[in-house]
Amino acid sequence: MSSDTSFELHPKPAWTDSTVFWIAGTVAFVVVWYAIYGQLVPFSEWFVSLLPLVRGSHLEEAIKFFVYDTPKVLMLLTLVVFAMGVVRSFFSPERTRALLAGRREGFGNIAAATLGIFTPYCSCSAVPLFVGFVSAGVPLGVTFSFLIAAPMINEVALGLLFALLGWKVALTYLGFGLGVAIISGWVIGRLHLEGWLQEWVRNVRSSASDYQPDQITIVDRIKAGIEAVREIVSKVWMWIIAGIAAGAFIHGYVPADLLATIMGRDAWWSVPAAVLLGIPMYSNAAGIIPVVEALLGKGAALGTVLAFMMSVIALSLPEMIILRKVLSVKLIIVFVSVVAFGILAIGFLFNALFT
């Protein structure tokens, strides 16, 4: 009797049927994903062969690129977002803010930029995050390091770069992207521009609340991955298709010689032109990477293309408009100037190193 009571009071931890079901379902999803992904090349070739197209024509090349890249990028995006959605379940705005609050500049910039990789918030979150960080005592420069890294070096960008262009490009982009975020934030912090925040932001006081770590189960984390897929893919799939369509046009119709002249390493003005071209555009990492893939395939210089990509993601005009709610025009100009200088340096350096 006593042994039974002891067993009831101290039950052994065990997975429930629900946990096993969700894990088994996740494994089955990955297996099916891999099987379908492996058939994309023969499927695209078979599909294009059914169309009344002149073999080897520009139109056929463009359509072949579109038919193959559309499911490929969407499938890669789904898998990467799901995996990183699980990873992101270990973080939250409250935890991120708690980790950065009180950090000194230097180490704080490094920590903030690194956290930005794993907490990729969109431009819509810029204002509440900015106010939350400032109110929690996070230094201005540290906050900027986070806000630069979060959209520019997020897990979607790195995952797609790795899958489409290889680990060397992805790792190089990661290293130099972190450098831009860290150094830009440090420079802005050294300028001591807190007085250039909007007055209402300066007057914000932290409503102190200790962060309590969530008790999240494996099933909760899997559901977080599924929710991330539902939320992110539903918002960006149109941009991805638009990006692939642009990439298909470049792949099929733009002459390699012309593109190499405009975005080649020998044209000194190509990097600043790419940055200026990218700023007014609006896209996210997933939408711009198919364009990057097509540009590189046509012989465009790696540094010029990455400078274009960084400017589109980190200096987009819509994000600047949103940040105008919390930053003065003078501070936005400093922010854009410092980040643009870092991107230019990366573009020129890449073009010098990679022939």
Rank of each mutant, 00 (worst) to 15 (best):
A248C: 05
A248W: 01
F249S: 01
F249G: 02
F249E: 00
H251W: 13
H251G: 02
H251M: 02
H251D: 11
H251F: 09
G252E: 04
G252S: 09
G252L: 06
G252T: 07
Y253R: 04
Y253W: 14
Y253Q: 03
Y253V: 07
Y253H: 07
Y253S: 07
V254K: 00
V254Q: 01
V254L: 15
P255E: 11
P255M: 06
A256P: 03
A256W: 00
D257M: 11
D257L: 12
D257S: 15
D257N: 13
D257P: 02
L258W: 14
L258M: 14
L258Q: 13
L258S: 13
L259I: 11
L259G: 08
L259P: 06
A260E: 14
A260V: 10
A260F: 03
T261M: 10
T261K: 12
T261V: 12
I262H: 01
I262N: 00
I262L: 14
I262F: 10
M263F: 15
G264H: 03
G264P: 08
G264E: 04
R265C: 05
R265D: 11
R265Y: 12
R265P: 09
R265H: 12
R265W: 09
R265G: 13
D266I: 03
D266P: 02
D266W: 08
D266A: 12
D266G: 15
D266Q: 14
A267K: 10
A267I: 12
A267P: 00
W268Y: 13
W269C: 01
W269I: 13
W269Q: 11
W269A: 12
S270M: 02
S270I: 05
S270F: 01
S270T: 12
S270N: 11
V271G: 04
V271L: 06
V271Y: 03
V271M: 03
P272N: 06
P272G: 10
P272Y: 03
P272R: 04
P272S: 04
A273F: 13
A273D: 05
A273I: 14
A274L: 08
A274R: 02
A274C: 08
V275T: 08
L276Y: 04
L276A: 15
L276H: 04
L276Q: 04
L276E: 07
L276C: 12
L276G: 15
L276D: 04
L276V: 15
L277R: 01
L277K: 03
L277Q: 01
L277E: 03
L277T: 15
G278E: 05
G278K: 04
G278C: 09
I279W: 05
I279F: 09
I279H: 10
P280T: 11
P280R: 05
P280S: 10
P280Y: 10
M281W: 06
M281S: 09
M281Y: 02
M281N: 06
M281E: 05
Y282N: 06
Y282V: 13
Y282H: 11
Y282P: 09
Y282I: 12
Y282W: 14
Y282L: 13
S283D: 13
S283R: 01
N284H: 09
N284D: 15
N284M: 12
N284G: 15
N284E: 14
A285N: 09
A285E: 10
A285K: 02
A285P: 06
A286Q: 11
A286D: 08
A286K: 01
A286H: 02
G287R: 05
G287L: 07
G287A: 09
G287Y: 08
